[in-house]
Simulated assay, not measured.
Amino acid sequence: MSDQQAIEAVVHLYVEGMTFANEAALRKAFHPQCAIIGHYENAVEWLNREEFIAAIVAEGSAPPTTQPHMDIQMLDIVGDAASVKVSDDFAGMRFTDYLSMLKIDGRWTIVNKLYYLHT
């Protein structure tokens, strides 16, 4: 599998993990020390992985027939670092996410997520 394919697989894991409140998928996609940052409900939200997963699980899963929306708009890879811009939906909201990824021990992982919630 190429680096691009491996990165896209992690992004798919992340989006499906959010859509279906899949804790295991989100834990696999995100590094344990990652940060998730953006404006939510008129305040800066700055979460670690556990807080982010708890918020996703609290929102609950989309219906099983839901087709997750994911549009990778940009993917840039240099060595073991990558940046991905992806549009996705969660709980009826549209987000643009900037995912910083790092290849650690041969596996790509999300180390930072900066998001924008479209109004």
Rank of each mutant, 00 (worst) to 15 (best):
N48A: 04
F30Y: 13
W108R: 08
K28F: 05
G17L: 09
A55K: 15
S100L: 12
S100E: 06
D105E: 14
T119V: 13
L114S: 14
K103G: 05
T109V: 15
T66E: 06
V57F: 03
T19C: 14
Y14H: 14
K113D: 06
L102Q: 14
V10I: 12
E51C: 04
K28G: 07
E51K: 15
A82C: 10
E50A: 11
I36S: 03
G106Y: 11
F20Y: 10
G60Y: 01
S61D: 00
G106L: 03
E16P: 00
P63I: 01
A35D: 03
T96M: 13
Q4D: 10
C34K: 07
Y115F: 13
Q5D: 08
L47I: 04
E50S: 11
R94K: 15
D80T: 06
V10C: 14
I56W: 03
M101A: 11
D88M: 10
I37S: 03
V10Q: 08
A24R: 08
D105S: 13
L114P: 00
D71N: 15
A82I: 09
K28W: 01
A21E: 00
E8V: 06
Y116G: 14
S61Y: 00
F30S: 10
M70D: 02
D3K: 01
A43I: 05
Y14G: 02
C34E: 06
A21W: 00
F95V: 07
K113I: 03
F90N: 00
V15I: 07
M1I: 04
D97T: 05
G38W: 02
H31L: 03
L102V: 08
A58P: 00
D88W: 02
G92V: 02
F90D: 00
I37Q: 12
L117R: 15
L75M: 13
V86F: 12
Y14T: 04
R94Q: 14
A29N: 12
K85V: 14
N42R: 09
V111M: 12
N22M: 02
R49Q: 04
Y40Q: 13
A6T: 03
F52L: 04
A91L: 00
A35E: 03
Y14Q: 12
M74V: 09
A91V: 04
I72N: 04
V84G: 03
H69C: 07
L47D: 12
A21N: 02
N112Q: 10
I37V: 15
D105N: 13
L117W: 05
L99E: 06
A29G: 08
Q4I: 09
A91Q: 08
W46G: 00
I53S: 05
L13N: 05
Q5E: 02
N112W: 07
A35M: 09
Y14P: 01
N48H: 09
N48Y: 08
E16K: 15
R27T: 09
W108V: 10
S83C: 11
L102K: 11
L13H: 01
L114N: 09
F90I: 00
P64V: 10
A6P: 01
H118P: 01
